Simulated assay, not measured.
Amino acid sequence: MAGHYDDKRAACIEALRYVQGHYRWVSDRHLAEVAALLDMSRADLDGVATYYNLIFRRPVGEHVIFLCDSISCWVMGREAVNAHLCKRLGIQPGETSKDGAYTLLPIVCIGHCDHAPAMLLDDELHGDLDAVRIDTILGIQP
């Protein structure tokens, strides 16, 4: 992977995503290994990893829900959607459900403002959210 770049440090995001694809998150050990392979300091690579909100530096659930935190989503009912997700999953934003199935995370605008409020469930975009739609998406009976 690093061979595709003039400077192998340029492969850092791709390398972090590769690790995350296998382990679902990037542990300190994996971060150190990738940093060594790319001739980067651990601190520099950690700075990259923590800058991008799609790189997880701690374990996450089997499914990650990113709830949009943009002004459009707030105006269109994000608070109610957040409250419903928290109630249904038994967690608060930033937490993972006890069964390890879901992690709920806020994310800055996901660009689906015309269908606010919106969320990403893994890599799938969902908009026009309300309690009924959320239950349907998650396969939860009301």
Score class of each variant (00 low, 15 high):
Ile55Phe: 10
Val81Ser: 04
Ile65Met: 02
Val81Cys: 14
Arg42Asn: 14
Pro59Thr: 12
Lys87Ile: 00
Gly61Arg: 06
Ile13Thr: 12
Glu14Pro: 00
Gly127Gln: 08
Glu124Gly: 02
Ser97Pro: 00
Ala43Met: 08
Asp7Leu: 15
Arg88Ile: 06
Ile55Pro: 05
Thr103Pro: 00
Asp39Leu: 10
Gly139Ile: 08
Leu89Trp: 05
Arg24Cys: 03
Val48Phe: 11
Glu33His: 06
Gly139Ala: 06
Pro59Val: 13
Val60Met: 05
Gly77Arg: 14
Ala49Gly: 07
Trp74Leu: 14
Arg133Lys: 15
Ala10Glu: 05
Gly100His: 09
Leu125Tyr: 14
Ser70Thr: 03
Leu85Trp: 05
His126Thr: 07
Glu14Thr: 09
Phe66Met: 07
Gly90His: 13
Asp122Ile: 07
Gly21Gln: 02
Gly94His: 01
Leu89Glu: 05
Leu38Ser: 04
Ala15His: 07
Gly90Thr: 03
Ile13Gln: 12
Leu67Gln: 09
Ile71Met: 01
Trp25Gly: 05
Trp74Val: 13
Leu138Arg: 02
Leu45Cys: 11
Gln92Pro: 02
His22Tyr: 04
Pro117Val: 03
Leu129Lys: 06
Leu54Met: 02
Leu45Val: 14
Asp130Ile: 01
Met119Phe: 09
Ala35Ile: 01
Leu16Glu: 05
Ile13Met: 15
Pro59Phe: 13
Arg29Glu: 12
Cys12Val: 13
Asp7Cys: 05
Ala80Thr: 07
Arg42Asp: 15
Ile71Asn: 03
Val60Glu: 04
Asp128Gly: 08
Gly61Tyr: 09
Cys113Asp: 00
Ser41Glu: 09
Ala80Tyr: 03
Arg24Lys: 06
Ile134Asn: 01
Asp44Ile: 05
Leu120His: 12
Glu62Asn: 05
Tyr52Gln: 15
Ser41Ala: 02
Leu104Gly: 13
Trp25Phe: 15
Asp114Phe: 01
Thr136Asn: 06
Glu79Cys: 06
Ile140Phe: 15
Asp114Arg: 03
Cys109His: 11
